[in-house]
Design a protein around this nucleic acid. Structure first.
Lengths: 197, 197, 197, 197
DNA sequence: GATGAATGAGACTTCATTCAT
DNA sequence: TATGAATGAAGTCTCATTCAT
């Protein structure tokens, strides 16, 4: 891997662990096997390095989400919604560094990025809402899901995503996915058309 | 207010905003209207100040939770569970600084507190689970809630709490509580005994 | 003992151990069971406290020396010279703090005392030389000591004192006095009139 | 000279003058024509700088002593013992800084070095005693020196060394060496075989 | 006498950054 | 590309000292 790329990866990890102030160029350089001034051969400073790092993280994340919402036609709404949970959470459980960085950016952005980040998340949510809305609309049309204001359905699903997302930080893989299934079942029971009545 | 108390409050806020490294004694002193060395008249150092601050935050939080779970006998399970959501989230929407500090501690504890924090959250969850278990058991006995493994019910409710908790960070008060109601309704529908069948 | 006196004694000890910069008013106050500002009730500052302390040390020392040289008439030169060694060294072995302080003052005086101290030691040496000269003159007159330039005898005796003085810092009491006797014997053999020839 | 070496030399001098606490990185930097943080390019802190400095001082000193005791076979005991005095004292009169540092280390070691220093001086004395013992044994065999317990002879010679050593701090070169000769003569008279009887 | 609160001065140290090589 | 040397800015902390109480 190129030194430049290596620096960026290390920076991402250290940012996730320690935050912007807490990560030092010395530590990054040490782990990359170079000396701090060498970083300036690739990036114009700490901020620049971080800017390039964080952009990549967000792009990754967006790409992942987009991927999940495409090719969804062949499945039922139930399967799609369940699948989305699984895929997103698997990603977060596996890419823990990226996820930690993501959380830091979301909740505690460095002040010089606050606006930028805020806009990103705004767009992200809108995109998610649009995509989910389609899925719920189809689910209602197919009589899989109880008729209800689609916006409300989206809202609750996003809350489910958020809750699970936060919990990826507390539990180990096995425990987490056991919980996920249990939670999913109750969630689905609340919105599915009850065919047993 | 005493200077000592003032310092602690400012420290809590700045920790919430910037983290341990990011908050500086200079800034704390400036806001308190004193000079940095004066802080040492009350705390033996930055770490000590932080330790005393964080202990208070956690005690506050624990106290709040305990308060919510007491005196619950007169209400139905539905009311109790709904009320818990409302009270906890109201606290977090109002005490935004303490909540931010709480989140930082939970997700990105300073290394010298990792163990301590970890133990605290472990105890916290156990306590919550015990209390919620009782509520759900009673709900099932009263035929308000569908018969189901109580542990699973607790797990899902905690996930709901987590999701909402995270969302206190994104939305304004009005928007947040609108969402809360919508989410609650769907959640309750998933676990309540369906009397219309 | 009065607090004022207590402070002075503690200051002396701490100066001996750590030097002027190394001793802090906090530490002095702690040991005296008071708070640092209270020292200002007795002394106008650290320098003043030290000035009063060091003056007492030097006065003590001078007083001791003077005492040794008086009342010497009844003894032989041999006994007198031997006795002086014993008494001075006993003092230094017993009053280790005062001795340490004395050494510090002599070798590493705080810059604001350099001149003062230098003058003191100049006077001290002159006084010692005068007194010793008398003893040696009498010793030569009595044919106890070989005829020789009295100044040279004084010089060698002072060197003996210095050597032993330094060694009070290295050895324990027993070991030290064993050495002293052995050294004294050889010294005396070098200057005594050899009656066996 | 390299900046690193320059810093070390200045540190040694300032330590000699003012002790560990009294010497400041600011002053060292000023004299070296750099700024305090630059010192950290060469040493990891004040302690480290001091450690490297003091090690060199002790090594120097040991090296000097060892040098004096070698190649002594061709000389008489008298010449050897006299020569040792001269060479050691010449060193101390010329390397006044190193000697002052040496004295400070010996009498007032920084607490973090106490053990280390103590062990060093212990070893030093043992080495000196061994070497001197040989010289005295040979001196007795050659009938230059009166028969006597060799340990006692060594003890007295070391006391002579100590006395002169301390006096290197009081007198100027000329005065000092005049005294030395006078002292030496009386010392030697006390242990030499008296051929005139 | 004594002290709690406060502070100016100054210490050590870290860190991002520059620049000549 | 890479780095050794250097530094300005800033941070934590210590300490003698002041002052109102």
């Amino acid at each position: 891997m190129s030194t430049k790329k290596k620096i960026k990866l290390i920076a991402a990890r250290l940012y996730a662990e320690k935050g912007f102030k807490g990560m030092t160029l010395k530590e990054i350089a040490d782990e990359a096997g170079i000396k701090p001034p060498s970083i300036y051969a690739f990036y114009s400073g700490k901020k620049d390095l971080f800017l390039q790092t964080y952009k990549e993280i967000l792009d990754d994340h967006l790409h992942l989400l987009k991927g999940q919402f495409e090719h969804r036609d062949t499945y039922s709404a139930r399967e799609t919604l369940h699948q989305i949970l699984l895929i997103i959470m698997t990603y977060h459980m596996e890419e823990t560094e990226k996820t930690k960085m993501f959380i830091r950016l979301m909740l505690f952005p460095p002040s010089f990025l606050k606006e930028d980040i805020s806009e990103y998340f705004h767009n992200l949510e809108n995109m998610e809402r649009r995509m989910l809305k389609k899925i719920f609309d189809e689910g209602i049309t197919n009589e899989e899901i109880q008729f209800r204001d689609t916006e409300a359905l989206v809202t609750a699903y996003l809350c489910l995503l958020d809750g699970l997302f936060l919990e990826t930080q507390y539990y180990d893989k096995e425990e987490f996915f056991r919980r996920l299934e249990s939670i999913w079942e109750q969630y689905w029971a609340g919105i599915a058309v009850n065919r047993n009545c």
